[in-house]
Amino acid sequence: MKNLNPPQLDSLNVYKRVKKNARDADKKLRLENIEHLVLSRYEIYESNATTLEVMTDSNIIDENDIKALGSCYNRNKDGYLEGEVVAEIIALQSSQHKNSCPYCGMDKPRTIDHYLPKSIYPEFSIYPPNLIPCCGHCNGKKSFKWLNNGKRLFLNFYYDDIPNEKFLNVELIFDSNPLIQEPRVVFELKNNSGIGPEQFSLITSHYKELGLLNELSEYVEEELSNLHDEILHNTHLPREEHIESLRRKKDSFVRKYGQNYWKSSLYEAIIESDEFFERIYKLRVS
């Protein structure tokens, strides 16, 4: 889990392009008339990018104005060249983030999330800093939720400080029957590295609202099975050699995705688990 690179697009220019390209005369006129309201909100967003929970209600209240702004993002002939703008946002990201959803780390980011929901803040429908690449599952889970009792529910991968300190941990739970080799994997959040309480509360909320801990525990099964199979069929190699190989892979995951990427946490747990290797080697000997 690492920060994304914020968009470098000129937001004013994007808005003016949308207005210019609008084919419907009424829509074009509406975008012209509310431009000063929209751009003033852009300035407020930019000034409060790290504390978006202070954002006041939208100043766009006319239903037709709201519809005009919302249609700018739609995938239609009167939209705002969505592919071009989204492509520029994605092009700024690392190869890892182009292929891994920042919200969950599991699926490819095939959609764009409006961090401040466009149904609540239509003025940010086409505001590049409000558009975050993510997978469809996380986008659907997040939906229009973002705030509860004045506190944000989700991490903002452009502007929040994603900690390097470890907080995503894995517990391997082994069956009492030694013939059942592969452990059950439980992901959990632990603040053992001095992450500030507000920051850790936001991290906890992000994982809770997206149901990530349960999702990860299920998603990890194939990776765990492959690792287990590889070691089981290579017990002619010493255990230390397998551990060193796993450590190299884990270190690569950490460099590319961060300490709190699910594979980083899984591999670390296996490396540190004597029982994981003891069960495999005992089974092979018997």
Rank of each mutant, 00 (worst) to 15 (best):
R184L: 14
I195P: 02
Y158H: 10
P178W: 12
E165W: 00
E240A: 13
L147R: 01
K142L: 06
N164F: 10
N234V: 06
K142H: 05
Y219V: 01
I173A: 06
E182D: 10
I173D: 06
I243C: 02
E230F: 15
H242S: 04
P163E: 03
I243K: 01
H236N: 15
Y219P: 07
D161S: 08
E221V: 13
E241Y: 06
D229C: 13
G150L: 07
N164W: 03
R247H: 15
K145P: 09
I203H: 01
N139P: 05
Y219S: 08
K208A: 14
I180Y: 06
N149Y: 13
F144H: 14
L212G: 02
N164P: 04
E188A: 15
T235Q: 04
E209I: 09
E215H: 00
Y207P: 01
P163S: 09
P178F: 14
P197F: 09
E165R: 09
E240N: 10
F144T: 15
R239T: 04
S225L: 15
I173V: 15
S205Q: 01
H233V: 08
I173H: 08
L210E: 00
Q181W: 13
P238G: 03
S245T: 13
R184W: 14
N192M: 12
K151R: 05
E198C: 08
E223F: 15
E215K: 11
V220R: 02
I173N: 08
N149L: 13
P163T: 03
N192T: 13
L202K: 08
W146R: 12
L227E: 00
V170P: 06
K145H: 08
Y159L: 01
S176F: 12
L212M: 05
K151A: 09
E215S: 11
P197D: 05
I195M: 06
P163R: 03
S201C: 12
T235H: 08
F167K: 03
I195E: 06
S225Y: 15
L232S: 05
